[in-house]
Design a binder for these strands. Structure first.
Lengths: 188, 188, 188, 188
DNA sequence: CATGAATGAGACTTCATTCAT
DNA sequence: AATGAATGAAGTCTCATTCAT
């Protein structure tokens, strides 16, 4: 029951934050969506800001976990690493599409604390390392890795939005095409 | 004088909205940044929401104008069109970097009215047409054009953010590399 | 066990009310200080207001008892009565210094009920009678007895606060001097 | 008009704080009593706590001024100084009876800031000096001056309360008697 | 025109109290 | 009997908006 309420608040927040943004989401909205009393939210989270940060950290953590799981750290073939990273994102988005939007739209929120931004950057580091390795092997374009990452993320999120809006159904083929796009974009 | 005040409000809003977001920006903040009385804002804009929409429409309009100007509508060579579109974006961003962030971060704001979203989509239409033409000519990947557009935009905005944060200086070479990235991403 | 919990709640309340005041003391504070659950307080007291009143009445009762015990009702020598009253106050304060502050700072609380204020005034009546007798015997100044009482109380509480703040150690001599002060103040 | 609103808020606060205490007084109560909107209070005072402190400092200042005015600093006869101090209190109480209660009941409030307590103690210093001089001259009892001051204050406030409750009308004779009480209490 | 004082709706948050366990 | 999770009423405070000057 305890876990239940906390989970409901978490999920309601994720939904609302991803759709309206943190600032445009009121606590009463969250309470109603989670079907709990307004005061109940404060039993589980210190305040609205803490709720945002816990939510952010939770999903950054999950995303990182998804990507890190079985990551072929010592693989020589870079495309295998790329496949893994891309597959991880797809898998995560598949289960947590709202979380993808939420992370994307709040990664520079003024309400994030140091730990949150720290976790965010530690997530990006995985990609930075990948880019760096690729550039060393002359397989990836010699552009700032930050920009390349954003490009892939931009593409990925665009793809998610596209799919969610129902313009088209998600297919494995589509995802493969997207992966190709991304690879083409960054590779030499 | 009238124009002056309106302009100051506009610019203050652009700055604040792009940095903090519409919801986190208060009217007193805007008034102070524009160095006008709070009531004065209401002489030029019906309310905060109207201010957002006028601002959004203004910059969407300018961006569209920049891109459309001398657009080689009947050009056969698709890369020339691509060059033009990319150059337009770069040129616009060069003069209105805040506006780029503003548009990016508010394109799905809950406070946008129909006209604003309409203009936004009509801007996207230019790109849609370009993609469609490219796909017809088998020069562009047969992926949903919406996704391809977002990818290019994502890359572009990522690039802008990257440059603005001072990680590197903007150079013509850098921009050319980015253009290449984008073209590689979408082209067959 | 029951008595134990009730006692702990009582003592925690006394401490907190005397230090922060009734209104600035929250029930969670009391529960924590008493090391009981918040709900438990309601097993022993109807609500916060009832707790205040029971506490007030309890200590007014004890003070009255202390003063009344062996009160030389029929003593002719007024100074002996005065000595007794003063000694009673000192004795009470010695054991219940917090209660002295509590009574002093809450004797006009908006949350006291009729019974509480009734007991308070009935306590004052002892002093009123003493003053009246003294005035009849032309030993006490012909001022409103209420004012004379407050003066003695004011002196007494000031003295308690003074001692508690550690400015000086309580000595029998000091108390005797105070008694003298008080007597000088009211006597002709 | 500006001054008017601020003054009304000040006076309403004084009334409510002196009657119910700071913690039991809500901002809506103040706003209603002052006949202004709730938000208006915040145009004049940063918050409720600031309102309390400004009020406290204002009246401490006035009281100090009243007492200090024409204070016979170099007078040899101590009773003349005493007369002056006592007369100052009476005069102040005459014009600001609510303020007397307010100061008395809030002088140890947890919401007072450093400046407020500083001013309070600087007010007490006037009395401390008087006591010290008296003790030096062997005219005042050799008790802690803090305690003697509290006694006089206690008497004075008791007297004020007594008068206000209408038990008796304030007369010059009454005040003279009180002064005598106080002098008897502290003098050798 | 321009202002900023004034306002009340509503946001965040706390807390006295209840009740299922 | 004891608990503490749950709650909604109410408190403090902010802010979009209006309006008299």
């Amino acid at each position: 029951m305890k876990v239940d309420k906390r989970k409901r608040i978490f999920e309601a927040s994720l939904e609302l934050f991803s759709e309206r943004g943190y600032d445009a989401t009121t606590l009463p909205m969250i309470a109603e969506a989670a079907d709990v009393g307004a005061g109940t939210v404060y039993r589980y989270f210190k305040n609205k800001e803490a709720l945002l940060n816990e939510l952010f950290q939770e999903y950054i953590g999950r995303l990182k976990e998804t990507i890190s799981l079985n990551y072929p750290e010592n693989e020589e073939d870079l495309t295998i690493k790329f496949d893994h990273l891309f597959a991880g994102m797809v898998q995560f988005a598949d289960k947590n599409i709202k979380a993808v939007y939420f992370i994307d739209s709040h990664s520079h929120s003024h309400a994030l604390n140091e730990k949150s931004t720290g976790m965010y950057h530690s997530l990006l580091d995985i990609y930075h390392e990948f880019i760096a390795e690729g550039q060393e092997k002359k397989l990836v374009k010699p552009l700032p890795s930050y920009a390349l990452i954003v490009m892939v993320f931009g593409a990925f999120i665009g793809c998610c939005k596209y799919i969610q809006r129902g313009h088209i159904k998600e297919t494995e083929t589509l995802m493969d095409h997207f992966k190709e796009c991304c690879w083409d974009a960054i590779s030499l």
